[in-house]
Computed example of a mutant assay.
Amino acid sequence: MSGAAALAGAVTGIQVGAAMVATRFVLDQTGPASLALLRYAIGALVLLPVLLATARVRIAGRDLLPIALLGVGQFGVLIALLNLGLQTVPAGRAALLFSTMPLLTLVLAVAAGRESPSVPKVTGVLLTLLGVALALGEGAFTGGPGWAGEAAILASASCGAACTILYRPYLGRYPALPVGVLAMLASIAFLAMPAAAEGFFAAVPGFTAAGWLAVAFIGISSGACFWLWLWALGRATPTRVAVFLTLSPVAASVLGGALLGEAVSPALAAGVACVALGIWFAHRPLPEGRPVRG
């Protein structure tokens, strides 16, 4: 994995955590589907001018629907399942459950023949999970029973893992930008339905000035970082990109403590070090003679 692809993955992982903090800040001012619609509508508006200013790429008709469905899965189904789980599962436990996405990505990629398992890769993924658990502290394990919510969050992580793998063939045929714009536009069409049920189109959203700034940050950063995410996926195996998502709960913990006054685990530094060590392990090269797929 090149240094540029690793940097793109790391920036995206941190952005996901920062967007979680901004979402928590503004979610009491609107519904979850309405916020998701605004997020990806702004993201698409950020990417469209860049796409129009660059060389035109025609996506084959047979690929339009699969890419659109991937967008619906990643931005619609994933978010719906995650929000459903967050209704009953404490935020710390939810973050830990969702951070299993790199491990799920590795399992699915191996099952699909897209990657070969290796000791460094498996060790790295497990170390990042341990690091997230340490960073979140005991809050990741406390709370009442909520198996249905936990199942929804794991299903959300599984959806993200599957999309991460399934994007790869299309990123081998087309640049990341047109793929990202098409996927995001499809998700907007999907999210318009639940947003309408929340009354999004009945009146102008009543955000405060700070709320609009948070929405703008969420949308602009999501558009830019989704482009970076796809760009990295086109240049590295799915697991090696997905492992950077373990930075998101760590970033959310740090920013939530600094900006929202949320409790920060005393073991945060140890968790960050463990996540960094896991990412390093996951990106160690295989011994000579071992094949690499994807």
Rank of each mutant, 00 (worst) to 15 (best):
G3Q: 07
G3R: 11
A10P: 02
G13A: 06
A19I: 08
R24I: 11
Q29A: 13
T30A: 15
T30V: 13
S34Y: 05
S34R: 13
L37N: 09
L37G: 04
L38V: 10
R39Y: 04
Y40C: 04
A41R: 09
A44D: 04
L45P: 01
L48I: 15
V50S: 08
L52V: 14
A53R: 12
V57N: 13
G61W: 06
R62S: 15
L64V: 12
L64N: 11
L65I: 13
A68K: 04
L69R: 03
L70C: 05
L70S: 05
G71R: 00
V72T: 08
Q74I: 07
F75V: 09
F75Y: 14
V77W: 09
A80R: 03
L84W: 15
G85M: 12
L86S: 05
V89Y: 02
V89G: 07
A91M: 14
R93W: 10
A95T: 09
L97E: 03
L97K: 04
F98C: 02
P102V: 03
P102Q: 02
L104S: 01
T105Y: 02
T105F: 04
T105M: 01
L106C: 05
L108H: 13
A109K: 01
P117M: 08
P117T: 02
V119W: 10
L127G: 02
L127K: 01
L136S: 10
E138N: 12
F141I: 10
T142I: 11
G149N: 05
G149C: 04
A152P: 04
A152I: 08
I153A: 07
L154P: 03
A157V: 03
C159T: 15
G160F: 00
A161V: 05
C163W: 01
C163K: 05
T164C: 08
T164F: 06
L166P: 08
L166F: 12
Y167T: 12
P169M: 06
L171G: 05
L171K: 10
G172W: 06
A176D: 03
A176H: 09
L177N: 05
P178Y: 04
M184E: 00
A186R: 02
S187N: 10
A192L: 11
P194C: 12
A197T: 04
A197P: 02
A197L: 15
F200R: 00
F201T: 07
F201N: 08
W212F: 11
L213Y: 09
F217A: 13
G219M: 13
I220A: 13
S222M: 12
S222R: 11
W227E: 03
L228V: 11
L228S: 05
W229C: 05
A232E: 00
L233N: 00
G234D: 08
R235M: 12
A236Q: 09
T237G: 15
T237R: 14
T237H: 13
T237W: 08
R240D: 06
L247V: 06
S248L: 09
P249D: 03
P249N: 02
A252N: 05
A252F: 07
S265C: 07
A267V: 09
A267L: 15
A267M: 10
L268M: 09
A270K: 06
A270V: 08
G271W: 00
A273M: 08
A273R: 00
L277W: 03
G278T: 05
I279M: 10
I279E: 00
I279Q: 00
I279T: 03
W280A: 15
H283K: 09
R284D: 03
L286M: 12
G289H: 06
R290F: 14
R290S: 13
R290V: 15
G294S: 15
